[in-house]
Design a binder for these strands. Structure first.
Length: 313
DNA sequence: TCATTCTGGCTGGAAAGGAT
DNA sequence: ATCCTTTCCAGCCAGAATGA
């Protein structure tokens, strides 16, 4: 019995459970709804929050309510026609304006890297060590376009030296792959090299197993555990701020992933290449970034007009 | 000072479902 | 059969409080 529960537990991430719990609490306590709910009350609940909450949040709350009813063995009121119609109406009247993380530009990466380089050469022991960590974090994060959680979950056991001088990183778990792990190559570069930065950090910190990116206290002692996911954003912003990047507070952990994707699309990477490298299975995910680089499209068309060419595609 | 914890709200991405 | 939309759930972000 206990074994079953263990697997059921593992089927849903903590974060999802947390989100659902919050949604149910919101329905019951904040709004005063009764459970099990009727389709009409769910529709009213949605209408009452249509102006305050984002469309995606309403969808999340709906998913939580559906899940609750399914789990308790009640009919699911969220699938009723009224509810669907109300959702459609909200979509119509309050269209979502989604906010995307700001892409980190290569020139800003260069600035931060230069600053860290200086610290490594001239800083004190603790300062230089921290600079080594930050540099590895930044360069691996950017060139591999990892999500924040993937970056912080990285362990030295997952990293293998390749014959060509690059690294091969095995991620056992990403946001979208559950069972199987996947290998991501990390190339050696002539400048802003993530492989060198990684080796330098791991070597100097004497990390032989476990988390790659760890906390460092003010005396320069490296912790056993990895950095907490919530520490990444403040860390990154501080680096950008110190390097003099304008509007440092507007960047986030996802800016590394976005930054790489924007750079790649601006550097004429093909859609397929980008999808394969970053690990997107759906072209639309990659297209989002390419559309961001749309101003360049004009330039490409101009060039193509100026230099008539064959119609190979 | 450098980092973690907590929790509400939001975005992202694959797969299922539906329309044509 | 193909394309588009919806669903579901995973992770991202903010910001304040709290430690070592």
């Amino acid at each position: 019995m206990q074994r079953i529960e263990r697997y059921i537990e593992a089927a849903t991430r903590d974060n999802t459970r947390r989100g659902y719990r919050a949604a149910i609490r919101h329905y019951e306590e904040t709004w005063g709804g009764l459970l099990p709910a009727t389709a009409e009350s769910v529709a009213r609940y949605l209408a009452d929050h249509a102006e305050q909450l984002a469309l995606n949040t309403l969808r999340l709350h709906l998913a939580a309510l559906a899940r609750w009813h399914r789990d308790q063995g009640f009919p699911d009121p969220t699938k009723a026609p009224v509810v669907r119609q109300v959702m459609r109406g909200i979509t119509e009247l309050h269209p979502a304006r989604e906010h995307q993380a700001r892409a980190l530009r290569l020139e800003d990466l260069v600035r931060v890297d230069a600053m860290l380089e200086t610290r490594i050469r001239t800083g004190g022991l603790a300062e230089a060590l921290r600079a080594r960590r930050d540099r590895a974090l930044l360069l691996v994060g950017f060139w591999r376009a990892f999500r924040g959680d993937e970056l912080l979950r990285l362990a030295v056991e997952d990293v293998r030296q390749e014959h060509d001088g690059g690294l091969l990183i095995r991620l056992a778990r990403t946001k979208t792959s559950h069972g199987e792990s996947r290998d991501y190559p990390l190339p050696r570069l002539s400048r802003l090299c993530p492989v060198t930065a990684y080796a330098d950090w791991v070597g100097c910190a004497g990390i032989e197993r476990g988390a790659v990116f760890r906390g460092i206290d003010r005396w320069g002692r490296v912790r056993e555990q990895g950095l907490h996911p919530n520490s990444l954003i403040p860390l990154l912003r501080r680096l950008l701020e110190e390097a003099g990047v304008a509007d440092a507070a507007s960047y986030s952990a996802h800016s590394l992933r976005r930054g790489f994707a924007s750079w790649a699309s601006a550097s004429q990477w093909q859609l397929r290449e980008l999808m394969d490298y970053v690990g997107w299975r759906d072209a639309r995910s990659a297209l989002r970034y390419i559309e961001r680089a749309a101003p360049r499209l004009g330039g490409r068309i101009e060039r193509a007009l100026a230099a008539p060419e064959d119609a190979s595609g």
